[in-house]
């Protein structure tokens, strides 16, 4: 083989290799993930376990309902079913574009909906280790994404992607960066590391037992949020999930909640 041939072979191979590496840009991956995993309606019945630093546990059951009501705008309600003393407590969210979301807290024994005037996205949600921010799907325009490497995680080939907020969004997020492990096969997020403003790792979210719930949609049956900073953990196990049945928009109204209908299982 001539030297030229050898050289062109090397170039061609490296071209394909680099093609493989850059076949998809970071943003594409995130967009693809968002497109593939998004649902119009989603109902899930979950068990939530809070683990204290002394390993004592608190178990709760919740119903989570989300409905897309506009372009990437959702209405969501999270309702507690157990323990008995908090049954019916609910948080209703109406996402808004270009202004703070509307939120209402319902405590059945208070007998009224309490509007949340200002509930920071950075606050922990109802004693869990998830903040409101962690639970909403992110707007990919608010972040810069960089592929750090590729890595096998939980038996899945993953892109390891660093997400940092764009300049004018950094005030709105609690994190200086997140590192996400996104699986190449079905575009699920296997693991997320959360770094605080000082760049310190404060918590890690790990998801496993992914199940297909229709089409390209996959959901983890088990998720653990390990909060190192607060020495606290939150475990979520999905008991039932349904992304195919339509949820009435009425489910996201005060009337529906005051009637107590929100606690009914599907």
């Amino acid at each position: 083989m001539s030297k030229i041939l050898k050289a062109s072979l090397v170039i061609i191979i490296s071209f394909f290799l680099s093609l493989e590496l850059y076949a998809t840009t970071e943003k594409d991956i995130m967009q693809t993930q968002k497109d593939r995993q998004k649902t119009k309606n989603e109902y899930s019945y979950e068990q939530m376990v809070l683990v204290n630093s002394d390993e004592s546990k608190e178990v709760r059951q919740v119903i989570r309902k989300v409905k897309e009501v506009g372009n990437d705008l959702h209405k969501a309600i999270v309702t507690f079913l157990s323990p008995a003393d908090i049954k019916g407590t609910a948080l209703l969210t109406w996402e808004q574009k270009d202004r703070d979301d509307d939120q209402w807290l319902y405590m059945p024994n208070l007998g009224k909906m309490q509007r949340i005037a200002k509930g920071s996205k950075k606050n922990y949600f109802m004693g869990t280790d998830f903040t409101y921010e962690d639970m909403t799907s992110e707007d990919i325009n608010n972040f810069n994404y960089t592929i750090l490497r590729k890595e096998n995680k939980q038996g899945k080939d993953c892109w390891v992607i660093e997400a940092t907020p764009v300049a004018n969004y950094s005030k709105d997020t609690a994190y200086s960066k997140r590192i996400l492990w996104v699986s190449k096969d079905v575009y699920v997020t296997v693991q997320i590391e959360f770094y605080d403003r000082k760049g310190e790792l404060i918590k890690t979210q790990m998801s496993s037992d992914f199940k297909n719930i229709g089409g390209t949609i996959w959901r983890a049956e088990k998720t653990i949020m390990n909060n190192f900073k607060e020495k606290h953990k939150t475990l979520i196990k999905t008991i039932k999930i349904d992304a195919s049945t339509n949820i009435d928009e009425e489910s996201f109204t005060e009337r529906f909640i005051l009637k107590g209908l929100h606690t009914e299982l599907k």
């Binding site: 507690f80 407590t89 024994n109 109802m126």
Partner: peptide, 18 residues
């Protein structure tokens, strides 16, 4: 302190363990 045990439990939801 409210009289209702349930309401107290619901109030506690506003706090994280920390």
């Amino acid at each position: 302190i409210p009289e209702s045990k349930e309401l107290i439990a619901q109030y506690y939801l506003l706090f994280h363990r920390k």
